[in-house]
Design a protein around this nucleic acid. Structure first.
Length: 882
DNA sequence: GGCTTCACG
DNA sequence: ACGTACGTGAAGCCT
């Protein structure tokens, strides 16, 4: 069966351009539109399997429509050059793939598509039109459907006659009338002023067409509407005409010229490679080859180590450097089973089952020798996992995962296979592909496991030198070797220690909260007059807004918003709202904290061992998972009580918390050199009060709590990369008022204004920003023509040096802490990091000395133009260390 | 698996 | 006119 696909080239390229960041390849060619376009094209070819394909483009800027109506498309902005220069590229891709494309002077892509669609329809050929333009819906027939891109280009919705009827209650042809009435601002088609989609649809449901509407002007509802339609009759008719797509464009080709078979990947691959379309390249090559054979796997000789033969490999450990990978059956290395190890030098690749490793003395000596350098992938995970098998790994002098992260912390994947794809001219099967995921997960064994593993270490050997060089070239070596790698060793120790949790205390708290929740639930059901699932935002919305008739203040994509900020505003209107807010709080405490923590508590030692993720946050911060110990409640008293179950691991020990006071604003004072801000910190003032004094122009004694609260929000806003909108949302004030606050702030702190302007300018020039310790974050959207993308990148440019430098500082303090504690002969141990705070446990008698050491190390971690201040508190539980 | 909500700095 | 505060992780619902 023949099948025709017609692609609206301009529309898809536009969509792709605005949906994707402004990518370039190494030659500096912009590729985002071409990339998005090609993604879409490949998807359509795969899914539709067409026998005939045509891509139509607009030609020039003047069409026959202009001779009818001069202002046609008049308001449209000029196509940005970053996009227009990609059209030749797209055509080249099409030529290489053997796909026909056409444009015709004086006509639009729409008309070419319309003409071919009519032909397809006449020949009863299944035809799919791919576009982002609703206009083309008018071409839908029994045989012709439209595939409309939704957001971005990846997602699409198919429209047939039934779908258009369901969506608009119109036939395809009536789409033209719709546009005739409502117009289209992007094409500058006027329509009838004051008539939007809603009114237009209402009129068409009643009368059916523009002509019929005009014939019944006196019967139209509303005086205003009557006047408007009467006044713009001609304009409506003309608009309809402009919106009508031609089916008789004079074309010098016909359907049979559009035949498409399949593309030749040998021709396409080099082009994709040049354009750096890596995902696409992988897709076309993997479809090509029967087996995913990597260039390396073919001639890789694997030495299987056994208890019988390991002795002859003892001399391997004379090598200066070996790569080591520890394979586990689970990502949580605190409880995963270690399956095997792989070890690679340049020449030799060893596969070592864990049981063999445990018996091989030469290996264990090498592993424990800090002078024997090891290149690891996630050395922290490897260290912790091996330690559970009685194997001590030290001397990890390189970490492929951390290096990749520092080189580009925004990159979404730092799996070894991702890194190989990015940095080597090769590929490695992803763990997920080898093992499968979810229910399809399987265990690997024997030769298959050996191959998978040794290919990893083989790749790591190659990666190490490449990454080392790249770190050096981008000024990241010192951050890597002095901070990031050492801090991974510190984190390994912290995670290994774990935090003791009071099981009975947690159970009791759980019981208490559960009975609270029960009361709240029955109260809510009483007030609602019915039972429902309070946890379902959908059901809750129906109760609040449909049944109880509360006003809808905010909507989400899928329905009513029931978020806390909305509910807080509704609270005065109905008793139930307060109860729901409380219910949410208690329910969160039970499921995330009581039950969540209980699940993660180890029965072996009664402790929780979180994992600090060191290669996730783009700013350089850590994150914490399984469980997240960086978001234990503190703001509300009810939640704060969760902290009472975190206790020291030994009798007569205490927990101690040391947190940086206002580290981000101090960093800002330092980076900006603003004299007023620097002075404020030197005089040790309450910074939010100081800001209130400046913004509201009052004396310290006249700052009200309300003023201080507003000033505090402004300070947060400054750190986040301020916008009047964001501040207005936060403070629940108008945008104008928020804008005035910001202006007053920037007048008071001119150095901050200059810093913010300069950092954005610098980011636009360099394409990245850096932190105090030279951590880098690239901002590909900083010059984007898309306002939202660009604005977001600008705020990131302002925020990252601040948040990132604070992250640098505490990491440096953590690295120095270990030796400081040793030198002071303290047995205290560091357990947790919460962004600007470190948590320790220690014997009571060490309290005084420990406080002094911790404060000194943290405050002296770096020297700023303002002092760093650290507050320290200790207590029997984390709750009491406040 | 996406969306919504909410916990933290 | 557009429509965002910065950075995370986890849970529950629903398709």
């Amino acid at each position: 069966m023949d099948k025709l696909v017609l692609i609206d080239g301009n529309s898809i390229a536009f969509r792709a351009f605005y949906a994707l960041p402004l990518l370039t390849n190494q030659q500096g060619t912009y590729t985002n539109a071409a990339y998005g376009f090609t993604m879409m094209l490949m998807k359509v070819l795969e899914e539709e399997k067409p026998t005939h394909v045509l891509v139509a483009f607009d030609a020039g800027r003047v069409t026959f429509r202009h001779s009818d109506y001069e202002e046609y498309k008049g308001k449209r902005d000029k196509t940005p050059s970053e996009l227009s220069e990609q059209f030749p590229l797209i055509k080249k891709i099409l030529d290489t793939m053997g796909i026909r494309h056409h444009e015709l002077d004086g006509y639009e892509a729409d008309d070419i598509i319309g003409t071919m669609a009519c032909q397809g329809d006449q020949q009863k050929m299944k035809t799919t039109i791919v576009t982002g333009d609703k206009d083309l819906l008018q071409l839908v027939t029994e045989y012709v459907t439209v595939l409309m891109t939704k957001k971005g280009v990846s997602d699409a919705q198919r429209y047939d006659i039934a779908e258009i009827d369901q969506r608009y209650g119109l036939t395809p042809k009536q789409i033209i009338d719709l546009k005739g009435l409502m117009g289209d601002s992007s094409d500058n088609i006027p329509g009838v002023p004051g008539v939007g989609e809603k009114t237009a649809l209402k009129l068409l449901h009643e009368y059916g067409s523009v002509e019929e509407v005009l014939a019944h002007i006196d019967k139209l509802p509303g005086k205003k509407l009557k006047e408007r339609v009467a006044e713009h009759q001609e304009q409506a008719k003309m608009s309809k005409q402009l919106a009508t797509i031609l089916c008789e464009t004079p074309l010098d080709f016909d359907l049979s010229d559009l035949e498409y078979h399949s593309f030749d990947s040998a021709k396409v691959a080099p082009l994709f490679k040049q354009l750096e379309f890596k995902t696409l390249l992988q897709r076309i090559s993997s479809a090509d080859e029967e087996l995913p054979v990597s260039t390396q796997a073919k001639d890789l000789t694997i030495h299987h180590i056994t208890e019988e033969n390991f002795a002859k490999w003892d001399s391997l450990f004379d090598e200066d450097q070996l790569s080591l990978f520890v394979e586990m059956n689970h990502p949580n290395y605190h409880r995963a089973e270690v399956l095997a190890l792989a070890l690679s030098s340049e020449e030799n690749h060893l596969y070592i089952p864990i049981s063999v490793a445990q018996k091989w003395e030469a290996f264990k000596n090498w592993l424990a020798d800090p002078k024997k350098e090891k290149c690891a992938y996630d050395g922290k995970g490897a260290h912790v996992a091996l330690r559970r098998y009685g194997l001590l790994a030290t001397g990890i002098s390189f970490d492929v995962m951390l290096a990749s992260y520092l080189i580009n912390p925004s990159e979404s994947g730092h799996e070894l296979s991702d890194i190989v794809t990015r940095k080597l001219d090769a590929s490695l099967p992803a763990d997920e592909d080898v093992y499968g995921k979810g229910a399809k997960r399987r265990q690997l064994e024997g030769e298959e496991l050996a191959v998978h593993l040794t290919r990893k270490t083989e790749a790591m050997v190659k990666l190490q030198s490449i990454l080392e060089e790249e770190l050096e070239n981008t000024g990241l070596s010192s951050l890597f070797f002095q901070v990031e790698l050492p801090v991974s060793h510190v984190l390994a120790e912290m995670e290994w220690q774990g935090v003791k949790v009071d099981k009975e205390g947690l159970q009791e708290l759980g019981k208490e909260l559960s009975s609270r929740l029960k009361e709240l639930t029955s109260n809510i059901f009483d007030l609602a007059g019915t039972e429902f699932n309070i946890n379902s935002p959908k059901q809750l919305g129906e109760i609040l807004f449909d049944r109880l008739g509360l006003p809808v203040l905010k909507k989400t994509k899928t329905g009513y918003s029931t978020s806390a900020d909305v509910l807080e505003k509704l609270a005065p209107q109905h008793e139930i709202v307060e109860e729901i807010l409380h219910y949410r709080q208690v329910s969160k405490l039970i499921s995330t904290y009581v039950e969540g923590l209980m699940k993660e508590r180890s029965e072996d030692d009664g402790k929780i061992h979180t994992r600090f993720q060191q290669a996730i946050a783009a700013t350089g911060r850590l994150s914490s998972t399984d469980p997240n110990l960086q978001n234990i409640p503190i703001r509300m008293e009810e939640g704060r009580r969760i902290r009472k179950v975190f206790i020291p691991s030994q009798e007569n020990w205490l927990l101690l918390a040391a947190d940086y006071s206002q580290i981000e604003l101090r960093v800002l004072a330092h980076l900006s050199g603003d004299e007023n801000l620097i002075e404020a910190f030197h005089s040790n003032m309450d910074i939010h009060t100081k800001t209130a004094m400046d913004v509201f122009d009052v004396e310290a004694d006249d700052v009200t709590p309300e003023m201080r609260r507003h000033a505090k929000a402004v300070n947060f806003g400054i750190v986040y990369g301020i916008s009047d909108y964001g501040l207005s949302q936060n403070l629940n004030i108008t945008r104008k008022e928020a804008g005035e606050f910001i202006e007053r702030y920037l007048e008071s702190y001119p150095g901050v204004r200059k810093y913010m302007d300069d950092i954005v300018k610098k980011a636009k020039q360099d394409g990245y920003v850096t932190t105090m310790l030279d951590r880098r974050r690239y901002l590909p959207d900083i010059n984007s023509p898309n306002f939202n993308r660009r604005s977001f990148a600008e705020r990131t440019a302002m925020n990252t040096p601040i948040q990132g430098s604070a992250a640098d500082i505490i990491k440096k303090a953590m690295v120095e802490m270990k030796s400081a504690l040793d030198e002071a002969h303290l047995s205290a141990v560091m357990l947790l990091q919460v962004h600007d705070e470190l948590i320790f446990e220690a014997p009571e008698e060490e309290l005084e000395k420990l406080t002094e050491v911790v404060r000194r190390v943290m405050e002296d971690a770096v020297e700023l133009t303002v002092p760093l201040r650290v507050d320290v508190d200790a207590g029997k539980t984390w709750y009491d260390a406040k």
